[in-house]
């Protein structure tokens, strides 16, 4: 369970977030939505320790994690994907996933220098595990391809596979459906659903309303850095403030 309380972040004089709070439960998909600049990605950056909050607290399983550095947050079981893809382009598809497994498979500089026995065997096991994850996102056949040779949609899936390799409790997805076609989005939604059913806590930032309404258990709506509404997709869809701020006129197709 990931709990965020009273999160406030200012950049100079600009208040990016003001008192944002929500609770994400295991087995559930929570969607953060809001217009551009509402502070959605800032929330991710605060949770993952890329930025530090001015006020507020972040708790993973009731333990404070704000103030920790990015790699420490990841080691505790929070993985993420990026809105602007951040793949390891010089590595192969499988190697990207293998790096993602680092929190559970840390390597030591000295042990690698002297190539301790068993090290490469363990690495082979890691490769096989990566193949398993790639099979789940439909990229098994491309395991040994360079990561940069994948299509945009496949690169998004690879980011998810890499994030899953760390065996996280919480998965943060920053616009996972961006750039995907309709069929790909539907596949992605089904896959995210299956991850939640395995007990993972999912938080996603998403613009594609079809995906959000179809997949989310709970929606938190941000506008100008504050939470203006929260609840189930149907509750949020009927909230007049949300309609005014974000979803547009009543006859808009998504409503």
């Amino acid at each position: 369970m990931l709990r965020v309380n009273g999160l406030t972040k200012q950049f100079g004089g600009l208040t990016a977030l003001c008192g944002v709070g929500f609770v994400a439960q295991p087995g559930q998909i929570l969607a953060l939505i809001g217009p551009n600049g509402a502070g959605k990605t800032t929330v991710f950056n605060l949770i993952t320790g890329v930025l530090q909050a001015d006020q507020g607290e972040i708790l993973l399983a009731n333990k404070r994690i704000d103030g920790l550095r990015t790699f420490e947050v990841a080691a505790l079981g929070i993985s993420r994907t990026f809105q602007h893809l951040e793949l390891f382009t010089t590595l192969s598809v499988a190697e990207n996933v293998m790096v993602g497994a680092w929190p559970r498979n840390r390597a030591s500089f000295l042990r690698c220098l002297f190539r301790r026995p068993g090290m490469m065997k363990k690495d082979q096991e890691l490769y096989n595990k990566a193949l398993g994850l790639l099979a789940q996102v439909g990229l098994k056949g491309k395991a040994d391809w360079p990561a940069k040779s994948l299509t945009f949609g496949q690169q998004r899936l690879l980011e998810i596979a890499r994030a899953l390799a760390g065996e996280p409790q919480v998965l943060l997805l920053d616009e996972p459906a961006a750039g995907l076609n309709h069929a790909e989005s539907a596949d992605l939604a089904a896959f995210l659903r299956s991850l939640a059913e395995r007990g993972l806590t999912l938080i996603l930032v998403e613009h594609d309303m079809d995906t959000v309404m179809g997949v989310a258990d709970q929606i938190v709506v941000l506008n100008f850095g504050t939470v203006i509404a929260g609840g189930s997709p149907s509750e949020v869809q009927q909230d007049p403030e949300v309609i005014a701020a974000y979803l547009g006129k009543e006859d808009d197709e998504v409503c």
Binding site: T48, V50, R69, T70, F71, A74, A75, S79, R80, F82, E86, L87, F88, T89, T90, L91, E95, N96, V99, G100, W102, P103, R106, R162, A163, G166
Partner: peptide
């Protein structure tokens, strides 16, 4: 190599 390609993603992978 991962750090070289994307330091941000490497940190997010727990490195």
């Amino acid at each position: 190599k991962a750090i070289h390609a994307s330091e941000q993603a490497a940190q997010s992978a727990g490195i």
